[in-house]
Design a protein around this nucleic acid. Structure first.
Lengths: 320, 320
DNA sequence: ATACGATATGTTAGCGGTAACAGCAGTAAT
DNA sequence: ATTACTGCTGTTACCGCTAACATATCGTAT
């Protein structure tokens, strides 16, 4: 018992005994068994983080925000990856919940019915991140992708472009990309426009795909004067393609992506984009988990963040 | 007890009872408590994976290899990130070991003394990945970065370049980048050459840093005819800089990076690089953990993988 | 009818810690 | 001297599950 007290810094132990215990622990290479500890105390310092992928730049940055904020709370993030598969999400969630974490941070608002039920039943703070276009189980931190799509469309139209094409992922479960496209088309419609062309891809090097898709669209639909990409990586590929082929950007063709990835800073020309507040999302989500744990508040809150449009060098200045 | 048997698919249970149990579990939203289960059975289906960073492209791909292989073994990877800090590595390791995982996959061979001791004492399979230039605690899967550096130097020299500069990270704890540089300089020395210039960076957008550093070096040392980058990202930045400034690549200046990241495929010209066998490393490491668990073998094995040099378009053809 | 093996279910004792409380010495206040 | 309190250490009963063993049930060969 005294050992337990020393190792957890809880309760009074005389300095002499504390020393003896620590010395012995060090000598024996003793590592306390958190499994037993957690079972006895009904407390687990783990936070489940469930995200679709690690291979694009977006989630690692969210992770950074989460880790930074959790750093000095004693909480530890544990990552599960779903590869954009709802079934896999469900099973990862089940697996993680069975370790009784202190909270769950999960990407998106769309989950299987079973997953929804598990989240609702879990009795711990749940934060759904990235997206707020929908109804969260508990709390949510994110941006409105629909609005983001609309905003970009409005900026593009204001700049005088009229023949607009969309290039993006095919993934049926990338709900956020879908919502951006919906918002985008909605704003086009309001201006009496419609997409002139669209092109989808899946898998492979995004940068390369961006080049290929851009070539395909420009060949097929020469009248196109703007390319809206569902993410910055393929947008960057498109930009490199245009530069390599001496296409006047943003005069003849305008370009825009989404995410505000750091990578763009290194490109010869800055791609228009909207930053997705990734770091901030991670931070705020972690704060909710850490905070709730303290004061036991259960009411869900929705935090909407507002991405800023970065016009870069690939959109003409608006015609007034 | 019967419930336990049903939920773990272990032992004989009549079909009727099994159905009843599953139905009840579903209706109640019952999620078994793995903490208690693990304590009782002394078995934990978790594999600790400890890596320095998620934000460059290399570790996510290793993770993919690990996840894929572990997928159908019932084992689950749990990721911890150290940010290249030995102290943080030590504490992350301690934290993870206290959950009694079935194995540890940890990047690099360099750890604090305490971390080394913990790994040695843990009594579970340990796989140190990425690097094999050193003495592993147990098993290791990786490449020789020293050899990789040497190989690249030899190829560069064979191609006729003589005034070679190095551009890389400043991070004192990126041992693998350091070893590559050591091997590189060693091979230069053997050919009677030495680095003409060197430039280091830390933090920020690697692509942008690549541009800036390249400009700095070329301005400061105009005689330089080859730039060896410690990673592909800054190499790509350098390449874009050269192309933008109409520098003849690979005639006037040759370029090479390291890692073989997918990103390069999308660039207007292919950067010379060496792929680091990331996917394969993840796979083999996971196999060792999964396999050992089965047959209880404890002997450590060292698996050296051999990266292939991809000359791309940024090294002149060797002069024979 | 009896014995037997196979299948199905129940019982008991932990796993390694921690919460809660009990005990005990020493010191200060009454 | 008695009481009250503080600081330190020890005791006990779990936490929720599973290994190991015990028991019950049933069809079937003897």
């Amino acid at each position: 018992m005294t050992v337990s007290r020393v190792l957890r810094n809880r309760g009074d132990v005389s300095e002499a005994t504390r020393e003896r215990v620590l010395e012995a622990a060090r000598k024996l290479g003793y590592v306390p068994n958190k499994i037993a500890g957690a079972l006895a105390s009904q407390r687990v310092n783990l936070v489940a983080v469930i995200i679709p992928s690690l291979s694009n730049m977006v989630f690692p940055e969210v992770m950074t925000g989460i880790s930074d904020t959790l750093e000095d709370t004693g909480l530890q993030p544990v990552v599960g990856v779903t590869n954009y598969s709802p079934e896999r999400e469900e099973s990862v969630l089940y697996e993680m919940l069975s370790w009784r974490p202190s909270g769950v941070i999960i990407a998106g608002l769309e989950h299987t019915e079973a997953a929804q039920a598990m989240l609702a039943q879990a009795g711990i703070p749940i934060v759904e991140i990235m997206d707020i276009d929908g109804t969260p189980v508990d709390s949510a931190v994110g941006i409105s992708h629909r609005r983001a799509g609309r905003q970009m469309a409005e900026a593009i139209i204001a700049a005088g472009y009229r023949n607009i094409a969309f290039l993006g992922t095919m993934m049926p479960y990338d709900h956020r990309a879908r919502k951006r496209l919906e918002g985008f088309e909605e704003a086009l419609a309001k201006a009496g426009l419609a997409l002139v062309d669209r092109e989808f891809y899946s898998g492979g090097s995004a940068l390369l795909k961006g080049r290929e898709m851009t070539e395909a669209v420009l060949t097929r639909s020469p009248q196109v004067d703007f390319l809206y990409y569902s993410n910055d990586m393929i947008g960057a590929g498109g930009l490199l393609y245009c530069l390599a082929n001496n296409i006047d950007v943003p005069g003849r063709i305008g370009l825009a992506g989404f995410n505000g990835v750091e990578l763009l800073d290194g490109l010869p020309r800055k791609l228009a984009t909207m930053d997705a507040c990734r770091l901030e999302i991670g931070r705020r989500a972690a704060e909710i988990i850490a905070g709730k744990r303290q004061n036991g508040v259960i009411g869900g809150e929705v935090i909407e963040l507002f991405p800023t449009l970065q016009p870069g060098d690939t959109i003409r200045k608006p015609v007034l």
